[in-house]
Computed example of a mutant assay.
Amino acid sequence: MDFQIALLLGQDGITNGAIYALLALALVLVFAVTRVIFIPQGEYVAFGALTLAALQAGKLPGTLWLLLGMGIAVAAIDLALAVRRGTARRIPAIVGWNIVYPAALTALLWLVKPAELPLPAQVLLALAVVVPLGPMVYRLAYQPLAEASVLVLLIVSVAVHLTLVGLGLLFFGAEGSRTPAFSEGNLEIAGLTISGQTIWVVIASLALIVTLYQLFERTLYGKALRATAINRVGARLMGISTTMAGKLSFLLAAAIGAFSGILIAPITTIYYDTGFLIGLKGFVGAIIGGLASYPVAAAGAVLVGLLESFSSFYASAFKEVIVFTLIIPVLLWRSLTTRHVEEVE
């Protein structure tokens, strides 16, 4: 390997690591707030990319029908609870978010021609379809079991993952899709050619990380998420709704996943089940951070991207094995250095 090849591999590693860092941050956020190891995080990556590809092809994406169906299911459950508890004032919000919004979005996509819209509008429409699925998944699958053990929540995550993968195959088929690049230009630095899409990925990832930092530090909802992550019982006693915090964390996780999928769709072909492997690599980064530290998780995810890139050069047949083997020494080190405390039921 010469220096030029090392630079190219480093460029690929940083690009992939930026995406893994976003997913690692989402996984740490969801686990800290809800104690859910969110295995389906990668499905939002695939849904975001494939939804954008469907819009660019002039088709109504299957995720739109999933949004409609899940919205009706959530509305039915919440309306029944509102009537039973006598909280009729919540009915307009329930109907508006879960029924009116998906119906209006469906009518909009039916009337306009998404393939003729500019790329920013297509991206916004794809996010508008996929992101609301996050809190809906939480409401249907996790909220009823919010006080269950981590093991039970993990089993539910496996079930949700398998369900979403099957729905992805039903909606988009087995063929992969790739979207046009955001930029066709290249940047030359010291003899190294950096593609415009790589620059887009890195800059957009850094911008999203900074935005999340500002959200947690300067907004009331961000501080509520931090309080819930630190102490759920204490946050509840201070008037913070842990249900609201759970839905918000899943909303952010869905937004991060869908945005990540849109960023990498021009770089690699996305299939209905591609997100699972990408999400697992983000999970390795989250494990390096102990599912608690955002900076360490992001750094670990970049390390995973670099390790994957250089492994593909030296031993391409074993690059996945090398990447996932990284989790073993990390878990061993944490097991030896962490004081074990029995879980209080």
Score class of each variant (00 low, 15 high):
160 V>W: 15
107 A>K: 03
141 A>M: 14
126 A>M: 06
205 S>T: 13
128 A>M: 12
156 V>H: 00
175 E>F: 14
203 I>E: 13
141 A>L: 13
185 G>C: 04
169 L>T: 08
164 L>Q: 05
92 P>T: 05
147 E>W: 07
154 L>T: 00
91 I>D: 09
161 H>R: 09
132 P>G: 03
196 G>D: 10
161 H>L: 15
237 L>V: 10
162 L>R: 11
129 V>S: 09
176 G>Q: 09
181 A>W: 08
138 Y>N: 11
142 Y>F: 11
99 I>L: 13
237 L>T: 10
167 L>E: 07
231 N>M: 10
165 V>C: 08
190 A>I: 11
95 V>C: 01
225 L>E: 12
173 G>K: 04
109 L>H: 00
105 L>M: 05
134 G>K: 02
204 A>C: 08
200 W>Y: 13
220 L>R: 15
148 A>M: 06
186 N>R: 15
106 T>W: 15
208 L>N: 05
120 P>R: 05
129 V>N: 10
120 P>Y: 09
116 E>H: 11
156 V>N: 01
181 A>D: 12
173 G>E: 14
105 L>Y: 12
189 I>H: 06
226 R>D: 09
168 G>N: 15
172 F>R: 04
144 P>I: 06
110 W>G: 07
154 L>G: 00
209 I>H: 00
149 S>E: 04
165 V>W: 12
124 L>Q: 04
128 A>I: 05
106 T>V: 09
219 T>Y: 12
161 H>Y: 13
92 P>K: 02
192 L>K: 03
177 S>E: 13
229 A>C: 04
204 A>E: 07
160 V>Q: 14
120 P>W: 10
184 E>K: 06
141 A>N: 09
186 N>V: 15
228 T>L: 05
99 I>W: 04
121 A>L: 15
233 V>L: 15
178 R>L: 12
112 V>C: 08
194 I>H: 03
168 G>F: 07
153 L>V: 00
158 V>L: 10
104 A>W: 06
232 R>Q: 11
187 L>Q: 08
187 L>P: 04
182 F>K: 01
144 P>M: 04
161 H>G: 11
145 L>W: 13
202 V>G: 01
109 L>A: 01
137 V>P: 05
100 V>L: 09
135 P>R: 02
159 A>R: 01
135 P>F: 04
237 L>A: 12
125 L>S: 01
96 G>K: 01
208 L>I: 09
197 Q>A: 02
174 A>R: 10
124 L>R: 02
210 V>L: 15
172 F>K: 05
162 L>C: 11
180 P>W: 02
